[in-house]
Simulated scan of single mutants.
Amino acid sequence: MVHVARGGEGPVLVLLHGLGATGSVWRGAADSWPGAWVAVDLPGHGRSAPLDRYSFGSLAAAVASAAPSGPVAVLGHSLGGVVALALASGWFGVDVRAVGAVGVKLRWTPEELAKAAALAGKPARVFGTRDEAEAWASRLAGVPVDDGVVEVDGGWRAALDPAAFGVGAPDVAGLLAVAKAAAALSAGELDPMCPPEHLRAARADGLVLPGVGHNAHVEQPEALGPVLDRLHGLLVR
């Protein structure tokens, strides 16, 4: 089961968060969208159930099961950006007319992949208090998150399923090649995970968002204005 939050009326924007976060991180940006929005908790995050196996395809299929019918724009951050691009392939039955990806890590070293795989194999840390678990959940996400912890035997833990770390490196070039919707790639000017030179090498028309880092949608939601404008224009044209 995938948890979604909804708001607004009009052209629909589906919002997909990054690894460790929840749909709550989109509140500021959602307010700037001139239409309806749907913010998803990805599987293994927040209030959504975990998966037996994590891949970009399995995440996209789970999101597709909860996506609205009819044409939509999809905007994802980091991991969510890759899932958004997967949905734009048309393979999952969602009518994606425009897709945006913010802060997707485009280059991975063997060491980074090995570290992610190691994290995926570790059990979730259990804390004695909710406050401790919430602090850990926010550290994992890189931003403060709501609905990011669950109560378990012995205390509290981050809602994030550690196995999600094992999703691997995305084939962004391949996903862009098969996308059936116009795509807008972007990243913060100060994003260490997707620096401007990586973004522009992958996509010459990539949007560099001034003055923000990896979590632009949380740091300065208004910085996403050019991305939202482009997606809205593509969706309603």
Rank of each mutant, 00 (worst) to 15 (best):
G28L: 04
P123E: 10
V150K: 07
E111C: 09
S24C: 15
H17C: 05
V104W: 01
V40R: 05
V145A: 02
L85K: 01
V12K: 08
L190H: 08
R237T: 10
G8T: 14
P11K: 03
G225H: 15
A62P: 01
A5G: 11
N215M: 10
A98R: 00
V4R: 11
L207N: 04
R53V: 13
G225S: 10
G46R: 04
A73E: 05
P195S: 04
L175S: 05
F127K: 00
A5R: 12
A187L: 02
M1T: 13
G121M: 08
D147F: 09
G80E: 06
K122Q: 13
D161K: 13
P71E: 14
A117S: 11
R157E: 10
H77N: 05
S65Q: 11
A163V: 06
L85D: 00
V14N: 04
G100D: 01
G8E: 05
L224I: 08
G8Y: 09
E222I: 12
A36I: 13
G166D: 03
L231M: 02
K180N: 05
A30G: 02
E112C: 08
L185G: 00
L234W: 10
R97K: 07
V143K: 07
V143F: 07
T129R: 02
G81P: 00
A21L: 15
V150Y: 08
H232C: 12
L175W: 12
A135I: 04
S78C: 09
A73R: 06
K122H: 11
A39I: 05
V102P: 00
Y54P: 08
A181Y: 00
E197S: 13
L160Q: 06
V74P: 01
A30C: 11
A177I: 09
A141F: 15
V63Q: 03
Y54V: 05
G166Y: 09
G20A: 02
G44C: 10
L51K: 09
R139S: 15
Y54R: 14
V126Q: 00
P110F: 09
L228A: 10
A216L: 05
